[in-house]
Design a protein around this nucleic acid. Structure first.
Lengths: 211, 211
DNA sequence: GTCTATACATAGATAGAC
DNA sequence: GTCTATCTATGTATAGAC
């Protein structure tokens, strides 16, 4: 009966509710994992009755997929600046900053993604073996071209990319461990600045772009 | 009535059953997370009636703690060789090989640990903020001493340790993603050899011990 | 579109025969 | 010590009044 697109007000409510649910779900999945998060808990966080979650997303499974989608959207775009004619040092530096910024701004998103992969990527397997694989192959070729041109020291393309993912995502996914070891209640601006500086220098040295 | 210690045969059965359950549980927790793993499923994997799991470990929670304990035992021992009078290059190389070997031999263990931390370390928080924090502080001091002696390039101690954890554990925790991107059904001996070589050179270059 | 009440399945846990 | 049968709680999902 209702056509959201034709009724601006309802469309707005619809959009806002969907977003509220997605945010609450991302938080819950990050904290408790897919199985540990409950629709009841997500509903409470979103301040909506549980039945509404089912109205908007059907099943828990579909809600989870929607959360993953919203994460991938931002995730995959970040490798786009890797081009053969770009300066490797600048590209690498920007990528590290960008990924660390994501780890800081959306730590829950990173955790949901990590949890999905750790537990066998039941939902994302096809995305990884198609889109992501293709993207990594492209960007690995760029890395190898940089190597061939003598712009950076020899590194394996795919593994270099894995390295950057590991180093940057670690600070979101294992943030609790890092905080507890450093004795912090929360990572401060200064902490994140040292992290970025540390990772940047570490990686640039490894490819011969810093001493 | 039964005293396991006094009755060798029963003690043996007891030990074997406990181990069978722990192995099955580690696998299940790795695959599905704490909440997603079920006692029924673990019992099936261990080929024992579900009631026996409760007989041996009481609750699911205690079983989970027992699994984590068995992992930590092996985890924490590996930093012991970091001493000021040891050769940094050798120490770092051995540590990388050792941790990667663990990632390869007990990928499930690494995943259970990762999942625990990602979801807020509800069980391990106190261990991390006491024992592990202390250990990292000690070993960070060793790193800084190496730096002071001019044996390696300047690096922050704790972050250097985090780096090694991130790089080595990534290959266990994100193994599915790596396999799918590399187009492998399983990582081969050769794959692991290249990984070890890659990580080793990457890290040694970063601290000035390889070119 | 919203929300209360409820159906149905499955989880963790235990009682009690063996 | 082992295992079947069962209890109770909680989870996902939906029916149906508003």
């Amino acid at each position: 009966m209702d056509d959201g697109a034709a009724q601006p007000h309802k469309a707005k409510i619809r959009r806002e509710n969907r977003t509220r649910i997605l945010v609450a779900a991302e938080q819950a999945f990050a904290e408790h994992g897919f199985a540990g998060a409950t629709m009841t808990n997500i509903a409470k966080r979103a301040s909506l009755p549980k039945a509404n979650l089912h109205y908007y997303f059907g099943t828990k499974d579909e809600l989870y997929r929607a959360v993953l989608d919203s994460i991938l959207e931002e995730w995959i775009s970040k490798l786009n600046l890797w081009r053969i004619d770009a300066d490797p040092g600048t590209v690498i530096k920007n990528y590290i900053r960008d990924k660390l910024e994501f780890s800081r701004r959306r730590p829950q998103a990173s955790k949901v993604f990590a949890s999905e992969i750790i537990h066998g990527a039941p939902i994302l397997a096809s995305f990884i073996s198609a889109d992501l694989r293709h993207l990594v192959e492209q960007k690995a070729a760029v890395v190898h071209e940089w190597v061939r041109l003598g712009l950076i020291k020899p590194v394996d393309g795919p593994h270099f990319i894995f390295t950057l993912w590991a180093l940057t995502q670690h600070y979101a996914d294992f943030e609790v461990q890092i905080r507890l070891i450093l004795g912090r209640d929360a990572l401060t601006d200064d902490d994140w600045e040292s992290i970025a500086g540390y990772v940047e220098v570490f990686v640039l040295r490894a490819v011969g772009l810093a001493s």
